[in-house]
Amino acid sequence: MPSDARAPHFVRSFERGLAVIRAFDADHPARTLSEVARACDLTRAAARRLLLTLADLGYVHSDDRLFRLTPRVLELGYAYLSGLDLPDLARPHLAQLALLTGESATLCVLDGDTVVHVAAAPARRVMAATIAVGARYPAYGTAAGRALLAHAPGHTLCEDDPEDGVSTLAAPVRDRDGRVVAGVALAAHSGRTSAATARRALLPHLLTAVARIETDLRITDRAPDAPLGTATRR
């Protein structure tokens, strides 16, 4: 966000602290002080203060020259996930979908221009395509993201999604008011499942799972603009 667009309440140091946490990912699970400073566009002194503060709070561990995130950072995401009713509601349907199709099933939501996987049921087969809960991908490049962005009435199929050799079939989930609130995706290896096979063999099961999730949503007492975490069952 440009400096001149920030509100008076904006806390720059907090922004920098979050940037330091985001500097660690699957490709960079460990970084030196200099690497963190470069990744976050910070001075070494500023990066050091932030890393040591995060270490004091238990979110970062230092081992000689390298810094790593600790499992405590999961608390930051868990606070969001634990407040959602939709992932808990969807998990039994995802498990059934994975069992029937032999492919991994996930529930996704939009966060800005990215799609986030908030629930998953892995396939019980060797060499299954799996996507971890919490994984984030650019929405435009994934089947689930496209279904959510376009509010597609049916389904979307993407090859090499979210990586080479994986095809994903996805459909949007609508709440009781017809608003798209999530997407359900099936991920399969492209070499085993062609586009035609996916639509013929997998799509009926996918749409059935989506319909069952939507049925559960319809019997959920939710105000029109209430966040997902505020729902209560009748």
Score class of each variant (00 low, 15 high):
H155K: 09
L50M: 06
A147E: 08
F10M: 10
E35H: 01
H205I: 00
D27W: 13
V166H: 04
I213L: 07
L110D: 02
G141A: 04
A26R: 15
A46R: 02
P204K: 03
A195K: 14
L203G: 07
D25F: 11
G77Q: 12
D216L: 01
S62Y: 05
E163S: 11
V133Q: 08
I21K: 10
D41A: 13
R199K: 08
V180P: 03
L148M: 06
L186R: 13
L169P: 05
R72K: 15
A132M: 05
H189V: 01
V73R: 11
T220Y: 01
L157W: 05
R234I: 15
V115T: 08
T32Q: 05
T208Q: 08
L89S: 14
R49Y: 04
A5F: 12
R91N: 11
L202T: 00
T114K: 12
A201K: 07
A185T: 04
A211T: 01
L100K: 13
F24W: 08
V109G: 07
Y137W: 04
L86K: 08
M127R: 03
R72M: 09
H93T: 00
T197Q: 11
A171E: 07
L99F: 15
T70Q: 02
T142S: 12
D164G: 12
A171Y: 06
G77L: 14
C158W: 09
E214H: 03
D160K: 12
T230W: 15
T156H: 08
A90T: 00
R91K: 14
A90I: 03
L203H: 07
T142R: 12
V180C: 02
G112C: 15
R65F: 08
D56I: 12
H117K: 06
P162S: 10
S62L: 00
P87C: 00
